[in-house]
Structure formats: C-alpha cells, structure tokens
Amino acid sequence: MLLTACALFQRPPRPLHAPPAEASQVQFPLDLPKEERLIIPGTVFKAVQLAMEDFLPWDVQPHKGATADEICLYQRGSYDITTAPGPEGVLFVRFTVKDDTCNSGGPILDMGATYAIDVKAWRILAIQH
C-alpha cells in the first residue's frame, strides 16, 4: 500500500535537452547584449514560480474533448506575467493571456489572476480572479 501511495507523489518533469550534435553548434556570446538583456531578481523569479505553480500546475492537463483554445490556455507560454511591489514584503504577480495567443476572435478577458505573494514567508496571501 505504501508503494502505491508513493506513485501519487510525482516529481516535475526534467527539461528536454538537445542531442549533443545540435548542442555543439550553439555559439555563446562573451557577454549578453545589454540592449536586449533582461535581469530578473531572484525574489521576483521565486514569487512568479510560486504563483505559477498555483495558477497552472506543471502536471495539469486539459479535460477530454477540450477545444484548441482551451488546450492553449493550459500552456504556460500562453500567458504574460507582470509583477509589481506591494506593501513591505509583498509582491504582486499577474498572469494575463497574451493577445491573440489562444483565440483568434479577440482578447480573452476572463482568464488570468493576480497573486499577492509574501516574499518573507514565501506563501500566497491572496488571489484576485
């Protein structure tokens, strides 16, 4: 019975890596271009990761018979993320569907959420849908 219960605790999937032949073709720059570089502070990254795991867990799957638009909404890459500092120790993290990503008929307004993340205790304080 214990072995069966252990099967319920799945680890997140490991990322895919390109084959060595393809990887050997990558040319790394000496430095990342300043005009295109984006520095994400570790606190912001961790807050976004915490909120994303609640908003769209890595192992969630579309329901049977889902439409193409519904399947699209299950893809983390379909969302833009906006962050902003709140009161001391709080970071707001907002997920919004990218324009024209999942629906050719216009923007999807009722999807997404804003999270208030406690960056001291690393917990979700509140969610606004």
Results as ranks from 00 to 15, higher is better:
residue 38 L to M: 07
residue 38 L to N: 13
residue 38 L to D: 12
residue 39 I to G: 14
residue 40 I to M: 05
residue 40 I to G: 00
residue 40 I to H: 01
residue 41 P to V: 11
residue 42 G to F: 03
residue 42 G to Y: 02
residue 42 G to I: 13
residue 43 T to Y: 08
residue 43 T to L: 08
residue 44 V to N: 10
residue 44 V to G: 03
residue 45 F to G: 02
residue 46 K to V: 02
residue 48 V to W: 07
residue 48 V to Q: 04
residue 48 V to T: 10
residue 49 Q to A: 13
residue 49 Q to M: 08
residue 49 Q to F: 06
residue 49 Q to R: 12
residue 50 L to Q: 11
residue 50 L to G: 05
residue 51 A to K: 05
residue 52 M to P: 04
residue 52 M to A: 12
residue 53 E to P: 07
residue 53 E to R: 15
residue 54 D to W: 14
residue 54 D to F: 09
residue 55 F to Y: 14
residue 56 L to E: 04
residue 57 P to F: 15
residue 57 P to A: 15
residue 58 W to I: 00
residue 58 W to G: 05
residue 59 D to N: 13
residue 61 Q to S: 02
residue 61 Q to H: 13
residue 62 P to A: 14
residue 62 P to C: 02
residue 62 P to S: 12
residue 63 H to Y: 03
residue 63 H to W: 06
residue 63 H to E: 13
residue 64 K to N: 14
residue 67 T to A: 04
residue 69 D to R: 12
residue 69 D to Y: 02
residue 70 E to I: 01
residue 70 E to W: 06
residue 71 I to N: 15
residue 71 I to W: 03
residue 71 I to E: 14
residue 72 C to I: 01
residue 73 L to G: 12
residue 73 L to R: 10
residue 74 Y to V: 05
residue 74 Y to W: 15
residue 74 Y to L: 05
residue 75 Q to K: 05
residue 75 Q to I: 00
residue 76 R to Y: 07
residue 77 G to H: 10
residue 78 S to Y: 05
residue 78 S to E: 09
residue 78 S to R: 10
residue 79 Y to Q: 00
residue 80 D to L: 11
residue 80 D to H: 11
residue 81 I to G: 01
residue 81 I to E: 04
residue 82 T to A: 10
residue 83 T to M: 11
residue 83 T to H: 06
residue 84 A to E: 08
residue 84 A to V: 08
residue 84 A to R: 09
residue 85 P to V: 06
residue 85 P to M: 11
residue 86 G to R: 15
residue 87 P to F: 11
residue 87 P to E: 11
residue 88 E to F: 12
residue 88 E to T: 07
residue 89 G to E: 11
residue 90 V to P: 06
residue 91 L to Y: 09
residue 91 L to K: 09
residue 93 V to Y: 01
residue 93 V to G: 02
residue 94 R to P: 00
residue 94 R to A: 01
residue 94 R to M: 01
residue 96 T to W: 04
residue 96 T to G: 04
residue 96 T to S: 10
residue 97 V to E: 09
residue 97 V to M: 11
residue 99 D to W: 06
residue 99 D to I: 01
residue 100 D to M: 15
residue 100 D to V: 01
residue 100 D to E: 13
residue 101 T to N: 09
residue 101 T to P: 03
residue 101 T to I: 04
residue 102 C to H: 00
residue 102 C to N: 07
residue 102 C to W: 00
residue 102 C to L: 08
residue 104 S to N: 15
residue 105 G to N: 07
residue 105 G to E: 14
residue 106 G to H: 02
residue 106 G to Q: 09
residue 107 P to R: 14
residue 107 P to S: 07
residue 109 L to K: 02
residue 109 L to P: 03
residue 110 D to L: 07
residue 110 D to S: 10
residue 110 D to M: 10
residue 111 M to P: 00
residue 111 M to K: 15
residue 112 G to W: 04
residue 112 G to F: 03
residue 112 G to H: 04
residue 112 G to V: 00
residue 113 A to C: 05
residue 113 A to I: 00
residue 114 T to C: 06
residue 114 T to Q: 06
residue 114 T to H: 01
residue 114 T to G: 05
residue 115 Y to Q: 02
residue 117 I to H: 11
residue 118 D to A: 04
residue 118 D to V: 01
residue 119 V to Y: 00
residue 119 V to T: 06
residue 120 K to C: 00
residue 120 K to R: 10
residue 120 K to S: 07
residue 121 A to Q: 13
residue 122 W to H: 13
residue 123 R to Y: 06
residue 123 R to C: 08
residue 123 R to I: 01
residue 123 R to K: 10
residue 123 R to M: 07
residue 124 I to N: 09
residue 124 I to E: 03
residue 126 A to W: 08
